[in-house]
Simulated assay, not measured.
Amino acid sequence: MGAALTGFATGFSLILAIGAQNAFVLRQGLLRKHVFPLSLFCALSDALLISAGVLGFGALVTALPMLPVVMALSGAGFLIVYGSMRFLAAWRGGYEMELTGNSRSLTATLAIAAAFTWLNPHVYLDTLGLIGAISTSYASWDARISFGFGAVLSSFVFFFSLGYGARLLAPIMTRPASWRVLDVIIGVVMWGIAAGLIQGVSAGAIQ
């Protein structure tokens, strides 16, 4: 149960930052157009990538024993930089979201979502790299699978909550102060995960 909760928290923290994909889902949620298929597509895409990271990463570790350490340190470095970027964004402010315009067809909507998802280089580092690396800190496959399940579940919860809860979130998230608070929280979480990865390497837990 602990591994699943860690996976859920890790996955949710990584996906929480409002990027192009999430802003697009939010926009469609506000328009109430293609919300279910769009949310399902984004969640299933994450599930596929997360599963590949958790299940496939273990095979690479057998051939390359130092790979978890390298990936853990690389992931920690990325999270430190990413967290710093969120703190900087919170300090600078100037948040704007373009949520106007007519809705596209379902095919066009999913095509745009696919581009936001599969053409985003960060998604591969987050899923195949970072989540895969963290999963190797669990000795048993049962724990690793639980961790992966938690991460996958977080994607489903996030995208469907964002899509269907958009009209409730919109009045709050259009306020610059709300985005500042969100970015600070994300920065703290990212740095916390980075610290955990570094501590794991130092203690020999990731090997």
Rank of each mutant, 00 (worst) to 15 (best):
I145F: 11
Q199H: 11
L67F: 15
G196Q: 01
F160M: 09
L14W: 14
A63P: 03
N102K: 14
A108S: 11
L14R: 06
L55F: 15
P37E: 09
G58F: 14
L73F: 09
A177R: 05
A170M: 08
G94C: 05
R92K: 15
A170K: 05
L55W: 15
G11L: 11
F57S: 03
Q207D: 08
M173N: 06
S51T: 10
L55N: 07
M66T: 10
I18M: 12
A166E: 00
G132F: 11
P65M: 02
I186T: 04
L67V: 04
R32S: 11
L26D: 00
F57M: 10
L88T: 10
A17Q: 06
A143H: 08
L130W: 11
I15E: 08
L130Y: 05
D183L: 00
F8H: 08
S146E: 14
L110N: 10
F12W: 15
A166N: 02
A111Q: 12
G129F: 01
I193V: 13
S135N: 04
G163W: 04
V157F: 15
Y138C: 00
N22K: 06
F147Y: 13
I198A: 05
E96A: 08
V69H: 10
T136Q: 13
D126Y: 00
S39L: 02
T136C: 07
L60E: 08
V189A: 14
Q199G: 06
L99K: 00
L168M: 14
G165R: 01
G129R: 02
W141S: 07
V201W: 09
H122T: 02
S140F: 10
S51G: 11
A76G: 08
V157W: 13
G187M: 00
A113K: 03
W91N: 07
R175Y: 13
R32I: 05
T6V: 09
G165V: 03
L128W: 09
L106A: 14
L60S: 02
A108H: 13
F156L: 03
V181W: 15
M173A: 02
A89D: 10
A195Y: 15
W179H: 11
A23I: 00
T174C: 07
G2D: 13
S105R: 05
A4Y: 14
T127H: 12
V61S: 12
L49S: 00
G83F: 07
A52D: 03
I50N: 06
L128C: 03
F159T: 01
H122E: 12
G83L: 07
L73W: 14
V70F: 12
R32F: 12
L38T: 02
H34F: 11
R144L: 09
Q28D: 03
S146R: 15
D183N: 02
A177G: 03
G93N: 09
D142E: 12
A194T: 05
G29A: 03
